[in-house]
Design a protein around this nucleic acid. Structure first.
Length: 280
DNA sequence: AAACAAACCTGTGCGC
DNA sequence: TGCGCACAGGTTTGTT
């Protein structure tokens, strides 16, 4: 579900409503959500601490705690982070609950029907052992910047389809299936083109599109599809889905050229959509 | 190296 | 209305 824009929207919510509020209680319902360590470890490391910053790298949320530990949250396909009053009923599949100090007290809830997502709390000194994937992430286009030369080098490094390359988190961090399709469409690049064969001009357009699409999506609070799986901390839906030009539009007329139709197929194991006329 | 499938789970939408 | 199947925003692992 959530890609860079959705995770960034959640991060902003955490910065506003979570950072600075002491964690006075921790409940772990389903241990699978904290499987990387254990229920006991998460409770011990979180209780009594205060979050001091909320960061993001690609689709990974990282909260710095005043204890010196870090909490990593990955939403995977169906995770949500919600904040609400303890008196309000917890949604189904609420697996981790942090009770926050303050009047009124509130709860930060990790909700995740499919339980692919997870919460990990660890000493940053052992990050390379506990969360090794963080060190394998490529540059985040929004927080770290991704310049044209970096993008060209990343594309030149693989013979896979350019769509697969954009979704490879070790090349560029944060792009998922929706934004990959939208970025390629805006750049007018065919998703099946071998990454290595992307021309200079195409790379330039991709570079611009990556930044434009991601930033516009962040400005709209991300994309909330029909199933409303993604909502922000306050339960609010995003609206960038209204701007999707190809994702989820297979078979319909292309909104960009008005001539072609949106085609679909599998690329790198993921369903992809593109316009047969404007993407080359 | 890359293509592919399967795995991790649950919910939803669709055809019959 | 109910059943079975396909499929879903992600990532890792193992097999060709």
């Amino acid at each position: 579900m959530p890609e860079l824009p959705e995770v960034e929207t959640v991060r902003r919510g955490l910065e506003q409503r979570f950072v600075g509020r002491r964690i006075v209680g921790v409940e772990v319902g389903r241990e699978r959500s904290v499987r990387r360590t254990s229920r006991e470890e998460v409770i011990a490391r979180l209780t009594g601490t205060t979050p001091v910053a909320a960061r993001r790298r690609g689709k990974y949320l990282i909260v710095d705690l005043d204890s010196g530990d870090e909490m990593m949250i990955h939403l995977r396909m169906s995770g949500q982070v919600l904040i609400d009053a303890p008196a309000n009923p917890r949604p189904p599949h609420t697996h981790v609950v942090l009770t926050l100090a303050g009047r009124p007290s509130e709860e930060l809830r990790f909700v995740d029907p499919r339980t692919f997502g997870e919460v990990v709390v660890y000493d940053p000194a052992s990050a390379s052992d506990v969360v090794p994937e963080l060190s394998r992430l490529g540059p985040d286009p929004v927080t770290e910047g991704l310049d044209l030369a970096q993008l060209r080098a990343a594309l030149a490094s693989t013979a896979r389809a350019v769509k697969a390359a954009l979704l490879d988190q070790s090349l560029v961090a944060g792009i998922g299936n929706i934004y990959g399709d939208e970025i390629l469409h805006r750049a007018r690049v065919h998703p099946k083109r071998p990454a290595r064969k992307v021309s200079r001009d195409q790379a330039r357009r991709l570079h611009v599109s990556i930044h434009e699409v991601l930033n516009e999506a962040i400005a709209k609070g991300g994309s909330t599809l029909d199933d409303a799986q993604y909502v922000d901390l306050m339960g609010e839906a995003g609206s960038y889905q209204e701007n999707h030009l190809v994702y989820g539009r297979a078979g319909q007329r292309c909104l960009s050229c008005g001539r072609g139709f949106v085609l679909s197929g599998t690329i790198g194991g993921r369903t992809s959509s593109w316009c047969g006329v404007c993407q080359r």
